[in-house]
Simulated assay, not measured.
Amino acid sequence: MMERQKRIRTPRNPQPKEWMASELSQQYVASYKPFNFVDGEGVRCSLYVSGCLFACPGCYNKAAQNFRYGTPYTRELEDQIITDLSEDYCQGLTLLGGEPFVNTQVCLSLVDRIRDTYAWTKDIWSWTGYTWDELMLESDDKLELLSKIDILVDGRFELPKKDLTLQFRGSSNQRIIDVQKSLSTGEVVLWDKLLK
């Protein structure tokens, strides 16, 4: 008698423009963590937005998959982030979640203000469950957000490919992409400080 194979759960795979921020985002944030060392290079301020539909098995921030987890994004929080970024030792902002690219109202408001205040002297990183190729087929708001960030860690977390030794990534399928170089060349260019 053959053993029944256990079905392995995998993250969800959206069609292009299926998950629209205008329809999904409740503009909530799961948390804000100023001056940390784990969400990218250097000292960073990290904004965790709420809401993600990828539902990656093994997600380390499962609570933030709920679009109403945490508290509403406010101008006061945005002001605090802008003030925190003014510290000389703070290298930049990191957007995580949840899924930043289905929370573009929040992320673009903050990113635009950072660019207005600091131009490109503060770098902006973002994690996303989307792959680069998927984002290239996405809505204008997602492409606008992508165009204003420096580094993108792309791809869903895949539990069978989990590797805790990787730099700034949880699974080996994910990439650390230099967004501006990739947009200018039309090809994915990996971050030049990649160690592993």
Rank of each mutant, 00 (worst) to 15 (best):
T117L: 09
I177K: 03
L95K: 09
G58S: 11
K142I: 02
N13C: 06
Q5R: 15
T94V: 10
L145G: 08
L108S: 05
K193R: 14
L166A: 03
Y28E: 08
S46Q: 06
C52K: 08
M20L: 15
N61G: 06
D112V: 00
D39M: 01
Q15H: 12
L93V: 06
F54D: 09
E187C: 06
N173T: 05
F37S: 14
Q174I: 06
W191P: 02
L96G: 04
D79F: 02
V189A: 01
Q105L: 13
R4T: 13
K62E: 14
Q167K: 11
N103H: 05
L159F: 10
S86R: 13
R68G: 00
S109L: 02
W120V: 13
K62V: 14
Q180I: 04
L85Y: 04
L47E: 06
A30C: 11
Y48G: 00
M136S: 12
A55E: 15
T185D: 04
I149Q: 00
K181M: 04
V38R: 06
G98P: 09
Y73S: 09
D141A: 07
D84H: 07
V106N: 04
L53S: 07
T71L: 12
D178N: 14
P16Q: 01
L166V: 03
S25D: 04
L135P: 05
L53G: 01
D112F: 12
I149A: 06
Y28Q: 08
D39P: 00
P100K: 05
D133I: 00
M136E: 14
L96W: 04
G155A: 10
P16R: 00
Y28R: 05
G42R: 04
N36V: 15
D88H: 07
M2D: 10
Y60P: 10
S171L: 09
S46L: 11
Y48F: 15
R68F: 04
I151D: 01
F67W: 05
D192M: 08
R175F: 01
E3Q: 12
S22I: 12
A63C: 10
G42N: 10
V38P: 01
V106E: 00
K181I: 01
W120A: 13
L108R: 11
D112P: 03
Q180A: 03
Q80K: 12
R68K: 15
T117W: 09
K122V: 11
Y60N: 10
V111H: 07
Y73G: 06
Y69H: 15
T185V: 06
A119D: 14
L152R: 01
L166C: 05
L183N: 01
L146I: 10
W191K: 02
D192I: 02
E134Y: 11
Q167Y: 09
R169P: 04
P11S: 09
Q26I: 00
E23N: 13
E158C: 11
L95T: 11
K196F: 13
R68M: 11
Q167E: 15
E158F: 12
N61I: 13
G70E: 02
D150F: 00
T165A: 12
Q105N: 13
G40V: 04
N103Y: 05
V29Q: 06
Q65N: 13
S86L: 08
G97I: 12
L190K: 05
T10N: 08
S147T: 04
Q65F: 06
C45N: 15
S126D: 03
D178R: 00
C90P: 02
D39K: 01
L96D: 01
V102G: 03
L53A: 09
D163N: 15
K148W: 07
